[in-house]
């Protein structure tokens, strides 16, 4: 447990020092919320009774959590490729703590990025529902989602041979997960084949739950189902990361 904390702490120190990474995060939120969101809003007034900014904000937040997870995976990849992992491996610490340290720092970053997006979104006119409990559950779901994506990113980071390879693989998830979800359009307007794909995407469940809980939109999917899917997603991805990581450090 100690080692997990040390590694988490070290990753956070490095994160807060890397101005490029922080600037990149802020820029991303500006691009999505301020440009995309505002632009689309002037074209589309309302979706399902929510204004468009409130409607797409949960999706943008999910996407930014994903961006945070990608950044977190980069740290493990970087430490692996540069050999820093060997310092941990030669130390009398549980191998699991290396992954847990990386996973917690990755999830922290993802959550941090999601929060920035939320704040910018609200500043740009998204309307939160007056439901603090809903906000809390939303954050919790978002954290689980971040853990899930961190797991996925870390699993890829544990086996990638280069930074370019990592980004290539991550890119395969990134945009498809956004487009093949209810982030930008409601489920009701989708043709059947696309609906099938969208319902296989855990992002859809997170977005639907957050929309209902934090922004007061009607739920289009049962909330317990959404919670179950997001939780399962977090567990499966963590388990995946663990398996891949274990295999990757076997000397």
């Amino acid at each position: 447990m100690d080692a997990t904390l040390v590694i988490w702490n070290k990753h956070m120190t490095k994160f807060l020092r890397s101005t490029e990474e922080l600037l990149g995060l802020l820029l991303q939120s500006v691009l999505w919320v301020v440009l995309f969101g505002v632009g689309m809003r002037s074209m589309i007034g309302e979706v399902d009774g929510s204004d468009y900014m409130s409607y797409i904000l949960p999706g943008i937040i999910a996407l930014s959590a994903l961006g945070g997870a990608v950044g977190g995976g980069m740290v493990l990849l970087d430490e692996r490729l540069r050999g820093i992992l060997k310092e941990y491996l030669a130390a009398p610490i549980p191998r699991l703590s290396i992954l847990l340290g990386s996973a917690t720092s990755t999830a922290t970053k993802a959550l941090f990025q999601a929060l920035i997006m939320l704040v910018v979104g609200v500043l740009m006119g998204a309307r939160l529902a007056p439901n603090p409990l809903g906000w809390l559950v939303s954050l919790l779901l978002l954290a689980l989602f971040a853990v899930g994506f961190s797991g996925m990113a870390l699993a890829v980071a544990a086996v990638s041979r280069s930074i370019a390879g990592y980004h290539g693989m991550i890119f395969l998830f990134n945009l498809p997960l956004l487009f093949a979800s209810n982030a930008l359009y409601p489920l009701a307007v989708l043709p059947g084949w696309m609906l099938t794909i969208v319902l296989l995407n855990p992002t859809t469940y997170l977005i639907d739950a957050v929309r209902g809980l934090a922004f007061g939109a009607p739920f289009t999917l049962p909330l317990p189902l959404s919670v179950a899917v997001v939780t399962l997603f977090a567990i499966v991805c963590t388990w995946l990361a663990l398996g891949v990581f274990r295999r990757s450090i076997r000397g």
Binding site: K10, T13, K14, R17, S18, R82, G83, I84, K86, E87
Partner: peptide, 10 residues
Amino acid sequence: FQDIVLDADL
């Protein structure tokens, strides 16, 4: 280790 293994930002 053989290669220099240090975190440049620390």
